[in-house]
Every structure is written in C-alpha cells, then in structure tokens.
Nucleic acid binder design. Structure first.
Length: 618
DNA sequence: CGTCTCACG
DNA sequence: ACGTACGTGAGACGG
C-alpha cells in the first residue's frame, strides 16, 4: 500500500493506493464505514483516453473513491480482483459524487466494469451539473467554467493544484504526447496517483459548497433533479450508439478523397497549391481579373462559400445560374474544399470512432451551451450536411429497425409567443396557421408573396436572435428599406415582443446581469450584448422543451429506441413492425402545453439509413 | 493558438 | 444615445 497526504484550505487529506490483494481488506473496511454512515463518496476513473467504446479492453486503468479527507485508488489494470472490488464498492455505496458522472464515468463503469449506468446514476450527484446551474459560462466567456481546477480554486483553495495541467507536464517530461500520456504513463507514477487521489478529495469537498451556493441563489432543487435525469437519458443514448455502414463509409471516404484531389489539381493549374488557403485563393482570383469586394475582420480578402459561389455562377443547389461566365478556379476550390471537409470531418471521423460491434457512440453533452443546449461530439452528428443525403446515409438503424425522426413544430417561435405572451401569435398557433404566412399577411397584407413570407421568416428569426434590418436583409436577400418597413410593421403587429425584451433586460440588470428562465436556469448576459436576453431565454426554454420531452419518453419506456437529440428533433431506431406505434408515442411525448401555447411535433418514419429521411433509397 | 471557414439547429 | 443576429464542433492555415 502506498500513502500520500497533503493539506487543502487548512484541512489535511490522506490517500492510499492499493498495490496487493491484501490491501483490499482495509479498502473494503473503509467503504463499509462510508456506506453505513451514508457519507457521500466521490468516484473517479482514469482511463486510456476518451474513446470509451472504440478503445477496447484495458481502457480503464485506475478507479478512485474518496470523501473530503480520505481517498483510495484501485489499480484496475493489475487484475480482476481490483475490478471486482470496485464493482462491489459502486454497488454498496448509497450516495456517490462524480464530476461529469453521467457524461463519462458512468459510461466507463457501465462498459468496462459491467455496472449499469442506470444503477450508478440513480444515486449520483454530479458536481459539473451543479456548477453549470450556478454559472453556465465557459472560462473564455468570463465565467469560471466547469473544470475541476478552476472550481476547486474558487470554492476550496486558490492554491489547489491543477491536476490536469500537472499531468500534462509529466507527460511532456516522459516524452509522451498528451493523447498517449493517459494510456502510457506507468500506473505507479507518483504524480498520476497523487492527482488521481486529489481529484476525488476535491470533488467531495466541492459538492456541499456548490449545493450551498445553489440554495443561496434560490435555484430550485427540482431543476437539479431534472438535469440529472436528462443527463442519464443522454448517457443511455450514448451507450446505445448507432450502427455505422462501414462498407459504404469506406467507399465514401475513397470517393470524397478522389473528388478533393481532382478539383485540387484543377486549382493547382491556377497557382493555388492549397485550396484551404484563403490567401492563395484570393491572390489567384485577383490575378485572373476577378474583383473581390468583401474583407474579413482582419482585413484580408474574404473568399468564403458565398463569395465563391457567386463568382462560380452557382445557386444554392450548385446549379448554374447563367448570370455570368463561371470562374473555373472558384468552382474547383469550392468542390475540393467541400469534398475534403466532408471526408475528414465526417467519413474519417465515423471510421475512427467505430467500436468492435460496428457502432459509433457520439458523445452527448446534455447541458453544454451557455443556454444549456446539448452538443454532440466524436463525431459531431448534429451538424451533418442536410442538403445532401450522402453523409447521413452512412448511419443506420439497428438490424431489422427503421429510423424515425420527430421534430417540434417551429418550437422557438412558439416559445417566444408563450414567454412574451404575444396575443396574435398565440391565436394563430391555436388556429393551426402557418406562422410565417400569418406574419406575412399581417405585415404585407392579404396579397403577400413567397418572397414576403421569406422576409417574415427572416424577421422572426432576426427578432429572436436580436438582429437588425441590415442582417435580416443580408440573410434574406431582400432590399434593406423593405426589411426596415416590414420590421417596423412587425413591431406594431406583435408589440409584446419588444416590450418583453425590454422587461427581461431590466430584470436581468436587477439580478446582477443574470436572466432566469421559467425552469430556473440562470442565464448570465454579457454587459455589451444585453439584447441577447431574448435569444437566451427562448433558446434555453426551447431546450427545456426537449428535456421535458425526453423525460416523458423515459416515463413511457421509449429511451431504448432513442439515438440522438438534435435541438428540436429526436432521432430514434425502432423495429420495423412497431415503428408506427413508437413514432406516435414519441410525438405524444413531444406534445404538451407551455404557458397556454401548444407545443407539437411531427414524426417521420424512414427506412434503415438516416439518409432515407433525406431522400436516400436505403 | 488565434483566425477563418463551414457544417447544423 | 444607439444598435448589435444566437448557440455549437471541427479542420486548415499561418505566425
């Protein structure tokens, strides 16, 4: 047995590292005492990296357990006897604490120790969730973030060591890259062990402090319960993952590489060696006699997709417009960049993350954004191209299943109508009208055109985002004066929107620049962008509609069918013969009342691939 | 490592 | 005083 000790904020701590099977006896005694006194015990795992499913056996290296003053580490890597002890401890402890528990460690223990995440999540308190509820901002955004280090420094001891950074410098000394370090550092390394022990001590001490802060701020306990439940449902979706059509993806990878190379070769004829270099592309275009007009923030010529599409005489569907002779370089750059990006960001990423059973497990962060919207990484399947079915075609429902996609109907607008109590909008929703056509009729009159509807839609989003006429005009392509007139009319027609925005800014100002949503989420505003309050409240409440719907689905036993949350949409995989019933049940779970406004959803049943919902045959 | 670009809602 | 488009993840370039 190895012993470590130290002092934090004047309070000492002791850490013990189990080295031999006989060391497990005092470990078990300690766990038993914690269980009997119902003391919360923090649990943490050290692993070979972040790929819980794609790594394979041997991923879990160390498991740590600790209260505020004493910690224990088990060398899982050194034999089944240690893994068995960890499993026993996870099962017997009545109250555990984890930092990002549902987001990581619960999945690790589920996959690599065989302890179901449902079992541990039911008794876990997640300090990352608590911290997020206090202040959702990242460090970059002026908050303290939700990493253990800054939270420890703020709530426990300003001199608490940065265990993550400390480890990284150890990796550097051992001449290991960061990605390799976690897998290759010897389990006996003193810094590795000390920081592993310290993490559970810090997490243990953090929990009561965060809980006290939440109580002081008046954050409702039910909000924390709700977020822990949403996080667990998301973890279940991560564990399920999705089937990857590996054969198709390998072919796709080759096709996209070929396309990227072919078009890069054309670009090279014009002197562009790297199609991703804006500098080279703009220089070559100017050389050809093209005139560029837009500059980037740093003063370089802007050569983004919109600029190049115009020069290449292409419309949104990549079809020739016929308004000018197409520039062959712009065309080649666009096509090479697109193929290259789709290959690396999507096809490569799919294949890098596939597990032994042919599934990918996109990681869902259930409260990532400062508005608590969810995000998905590895791979970022929330952002797959929707204009072309080829990428989504690679992801499949389970064997014998079909894909079901269920979308909320215009959820952000309905949330705005509900939160701001917009009378005419609420009436239109109740009457089942198309909201953008309804607005177009009010703003432009009975004979409104498709173009008018588009402007109305642009204004609707512009209002929610806090945009002005200039931006709406740019986005919709409508003339600025028409947009200005339409926006003025919009304010007359829906006076409650502007009034609510003003009230919300005042409320936030009186609450130390924090807006509070109806569910109790705290939404800090940036001092120079307080207009964003409308967007924050609407986006956050729409996100809570998704969270509420997921809880309804949990109550009805539908979670095993769920695959992904996509902001206003839920993707599911269901047996072909049950698809209709499950699709109906999911829609019902996404149908409820929000402050007198109906929230509703439409389900679409596809074939086996996700791409089938975008026109693919399979 | 900051900036730019591009994919999504 | 006035007006401000919101939120993400990922890859490439270039200093």
């Amino acid at each position: 047995m190895r012993h470590f000790s130290g002092t934090l904020n004047g309070l000492g701590w002791d850490g013990y590292v189990v080295e031999r099977p006989e060391d497990l006896e005092p470990f078990r005694d300690w766990i038993r005492r914690q269980a009997e006194s119902r003391t919360p015990v923090a649990v943490d795992t050290e692993t070979c990296g972040l790929k819980i499913y794609a790594w394979g056996p041997g991923f879990l290296r160390l498991a740590q357990f600790g209260n505020e003053t004493e910690a224990w580490a088990l060398p899982i890597e050194h034999g089944a006897v240690y893994a068995e002890a960890a499993v026993w401890a996870l099962r017997i402890l009545p109250d555990i604490t984890g930092h990002n528990w549902a987001g990581f460690d619960a999945l690790v223990c589920d996959e690599h120790l065989g302890v179901p995440l449902e079992e541990t999540c039911a008794k876990a308190t997640d300090t990352k969730i608590l911290a997020k509820l206090i202040d959702p901002r990242a460090e970059m955004e002026g908050g303290i973030g939700q990493s253990l280090k800054p939270l420890s420094a703020h709530y426990i001891d300003a001199s608490a060591p940065d265990t993550q950074d400390g480890l990284k410098s150890v990796f550097k000394d051992l001449k290991l890259k960061i990605a390799e370090g976690f897998a290759k550092i010897p389990l006996s390394h003193p810094t590795y062990l000390e920081y592993g022990l310290l993490d559970v001590i810090l997490t243990s001490r953090l929990r009561p402090r965060l809980e006290r802060t939440l109580a002081k701020l008046g954050v409702p306990q039910r909000l924390s319960v709700y977020e822990h439940r949403v996080a667990r449902i998301c973890a279940q979706m991560v564990r399920a993952g999705m089937v990857l059509d590996e054969e198709y993806t390998t072919g796709l990878q080759a096709d996209l590489s070929y396309d990227a190379d072919q078009f890069a070769e054309i670009a090279l004829r014009y002197g562009v060696e790297s199609v991703n270099s804006g500098r080279q592309v703009s220089a070559a275009l100017l050389d050809m006699g093209e005139s560029l007009t837009e500059k980037t923030a740093s003063g370089a010529w802007k050569v983004d997709k919109a600029v190049l599409m115009a020069i290449a005489d292409l419309d949104r569907d990549w079809k020739a417009i016929g308004s000018r002779p197409p520039n062959a370089l712009a065309d080649a750059v666009l096509r090479s960049k697109r193929a290259g990006k789709w290959r690396s960001a999507y096809a490569d990423n799919f294949l890098e993350n596939v597990d032994a059973r042919g599934r990918i497990h996109p990681n869902i962060q259930s409260m990532q954004a400062r508005t608590f919207r969810m995000s998905v990484t590895q791979p970022a399947v929330q952002t797959l191209p929707s204009s072309d079915k080829m990428i989504r075609r690679a992801l499949l429902a389970d064997e014998g299943h079909v894909m079901i996609s269920t979308d909320f109907q215009a959820v952000e607008l309905r949330v705005l109508a509900a939160l701001a109590d917009v009378k005419r909008m609420k009436l239109a929703i109740a009457n089942g009208e198309d909201l953008h056509s309804f607005t177009a009729r009010l703003v432009f009159g009975e004979g409104f055109t498709d173009k008018d509807r588009k402007v109305s839609k642009g204004i609707a989003f512009g209002k929610v985002y806090g945009g002005g006429a200039t931006t709406v005009a740019r986005q919709t392509g409508a003339p600025i004066d028409a947009v200005q007139r339409a926006m003025a009319k919009y304010d007359q027609v829906y006076p409650e929107v502007g009034r609510a925005a003003k009230d919300w800014r005042i409320e936030a100002f009186n609450n130390r620049m924090v807006a509070v949503s109806i569910t109790g989420h705290r939404l800090p505003l940036d001092r120079d962008r307080t207009y964003a309050v409308t967007n924050y409240l609407v986006q956050s409440t729409a996100r809570d509609c998704l969270g509420q719907a997921l809880i309804h689905m949990d109550e009805r036993g539908l979670v095993p069918f769920l695959r992904l949350p996509i902001h206003d949409e839920v993707l599911a995989s269901a047996p072909k013969e049950d698809a209709k019933d499950i699709a109906r049940a999911i829609s019902e779970c996404m149908t409820f009342d929000l402050l007198g406004v109906p929230i509703a959803a439409d389900a679409e049943i596809g074939k086996r691939s996700w791409g089938s919902l975008y026109g693919a045959d399979f």
